[in-house]
Computed example of a mutant assay.
Amino acid sequence: KGLSFDTVMMPYTNFDFNHNAYKAPILWAKADKPPFNRFPFLPVKYSGKLTQTIFRKDYFDEMLYSYTDAVNLLYVAFTRAENELITFSSVKKSNPKKKNDNSVKNTSDALYQIINQSVTTRVGEQERTFNLSDFYDKETQIFDFSVNHKTEKKTIITDSQNTDFNKDLYPNNRWQNKLKLKFSSEDFLIESVPEIEEKVNHGKLMHLIFQNINTAEDVEKSVMMQHYEGLLTLDEARELKESISNIITDINVKHWFDGSYEVLNEDALLTEKGTVRIPDRVLFSEEKLIVIDFKFGKHHKKYKDQLDEYRHLLEDLYKLPVQSFLYYPENKKIIEVTEGSQQKVIE
């Protein structure tokens, strides 16, 4: 925090204070009047209509949070520049039906009102008051305010001494030919192949559950989180809780879940090339590290190569020996992967 950058640029300083109607969140509201108080919480869509209901307090609370988030974001950005702050905002369109419309719906509206006010600031040891509108050019729609600021221009001369820029010769390509959509089976349902769809969704669900389990005591909470998200019925949650509890108390893996290690679940590792790798579970002790990848389907060779990469990244980072395992919880199968993707099945 504080002054972090010489220059800060914000190209789109026009984010809304309130939620967009098309992207309104669902509020989990608590009612104190019958018949709604029969439920601990009720899902209601965020809308101005809630002001006329028993959920008006939830509505105004959420509105306050939304405004606060926007103001905080603006504050953080505006207080990071040491020398220059450059922002781009949209000018509020005039409405013939509302001649004196002073409403503030987004950060652009707020900034436009601010630059039409006076501000008092300290320059050196003196306090000075500035009329900010004096620094706003309505024709160019540029607000330029500076104190003892000098702009340095650097000239780059090529070998040919030709510094002209020919816009007609500038290479340009259609962006449509550069963008492609990459679909992942974990991000959409394969409705045409029900068997694959079921396996993909099951594996994703199990990963969600295991990423919130540090010790055996976390199993119930993690499973019930998916129940509350609507991904499991109550009966399915109870059955899955019992199944996972039995799995992680198996003699070969229970030490991974007994609290004897410091645990990082789904924590990102940054490679030298700038790519990100995310192992499912890393266990820390003073003598060694253990990296574990959970699998809920058929075994593939690429899993071993993936685990090899995790191990090398962790060894370089922590300078400690690292053991790496592929773990198939539902089959209670453990494969230790050693240097060169060699594997050893632990029964």
Score class of each variant (00 low, 15 high):
residue 178 K to S: 09
residue 313 L to E: 11
residue 51 T to M: 14
residue 194 P to Y: 01
residue 345 V to M: 11
residue 261 Y to A: 03
residue 45 K to A: 03
residue 221 K to S: 10
residue 344 K to F: 14
residue 154 K to R: 14
residue 303 Y to F: 15
residue 161 Q to M: 14
residue 153 K to A: 05
residue 203 G to L: 07
residue 22 Y to K: 15
residue 340 G to W: 15
residue 61 D to E: 14
residue 246 N to H: 07
residue 35 P to L: 11
residue 113 Q to P: 00
residue 148 N to W: 01
residue 205 L to R: 02
residue 254 K to A: 01
residue 158 T to H: 07
residue 167 K to D: 10
residue 177 N to G: 02
residue 162 N to F: 08
residue 197 E to L: 02
residue 204 K to V: 15
residue 277 R to M: 10
residue 158 T to L: 10
residue 186 E to D: 15
residue 302 K to Y: 09
residue 65 Y to D: 06
residue 323 Q to C: 03
residue 320 L to A: 05
residue 257 F to M: 01
residue 115 I to G: 11
residue 134 D to E: 14
residue 340 G to K: 07
residue 112 Y to G: 11
residue 200 V to T: 07
residue 33 K to V: 15
residue 113 Q to N: 14
residue 309 E to R: 11
residue 182 K to G: 09
residue 150 K to W: 08
residue 145 F to I: 09
residue 265 N to A: 07
residue 85 L to C: 03
residue 190 I to W: 02
residue 180 K to F: 08
residue 281 R to L: 02
residue 174 R to Y: 12
residue 23 K to Q: 12
residue 185 S to Y: 15
residue 75 Y to H: 02
residue 41 F to Q: 14
residue 106 N to W: 00
residue 220 E to A: 11
residue 275 T to Q: 09
residue 30 K to Q: 13
residue 213 I to W: 07
residue 147 V to P: 05
residue 153 K to D: 00
residue 145 F to E: 13
residue 347 E to S: 14
residue 174 R to N: 12
residue 214 N to P: 05
residue 7 T to S: 06
residue 183 F to E: 13
residue 112 Y to V: 12
residue 123 V to Y: 05
residue 130 F to W: 09
residue 331 N to C: 06
residue 183 F to G: 06
residue 194 P to R: 05
residue 337 V to L: 10
residue 246 N to V: 01
residue 321 P to E: 02
residue 78 F to L: 04
residue 218 D to G: 06
residue 267 D to G: 02
residue 188 F to S: 13
residue 86 I to A: 05
residue 270 L to V: 15
residue 94 S to Q: 13
residue 3 L to F: 11
residue 169 L to R: 08
residue 157 I to K: 13
residue 35 P to R: 05
residue 151 T to Y: 07
residue 255 H to K: 13
residue 70 A to P: 00
residue 67 Y to K: 06
residue 160 S to T: 15
residue 193 V to P: 04
residue 260 S to W: 09
residue 113 Q to L: 12
residue 18 N to L: 12
residue 169 L to Q: 10
residue 145 F to P: 14
residue 119 V to G: 08
residue 108 S to R: 01
residue 35 P to M: 09
residue 196 I to D: 15
residue 258 D to C: 08
residue 141 Q to S: 15
residue 4 S to V: 12
residue 320 L to Q: 12
residue 172 N to D: 03
residue 46 Y to V: 05
residue 65 Y to T: 04
residue 23 K to P: 04
residue 196 I to N: 12
residue 228 Y to E: 12
residue 329 P to G: 04
residue 291 V to K: 01
residue 69 D to Y: 05
residue 40 P to T: 09
residue 345 V to I: 15
residue 120 T to W: 04
residue 61 D to S: 07
residue 308 D to R: 05
residue 76 V to A: 03
residue 312 H to K: 14
residue 226 Q to E: 10
residue 13 T to R: 01
residue 151 T to E: 01
residue 178 K to A: 07
residue 204 K to T: 15
residue 234 L to F: 03
residue 156 I to F: 14
residue 243 S to C: 06
residue 175 W to S: 07
residue 147 V to Q: 14
residue 275 T to R: 11
residue 294 F to C: 00
residue 271 T to L: 13
residue 220 E to H: 10
residue 114 I to E: 08
residue 185 S to V: 08
residue 74 L to V: 09
residue 85 L to E: 00
residue 146 S to Y: 04
residue 317 L to A: 13
residue 279 P to A: 08
residue 156 I to V: 11
residue 56 R to L: 05
residue 63 M to K: 09
residue 59 Y to G: 00
residue 221 K to C: 02
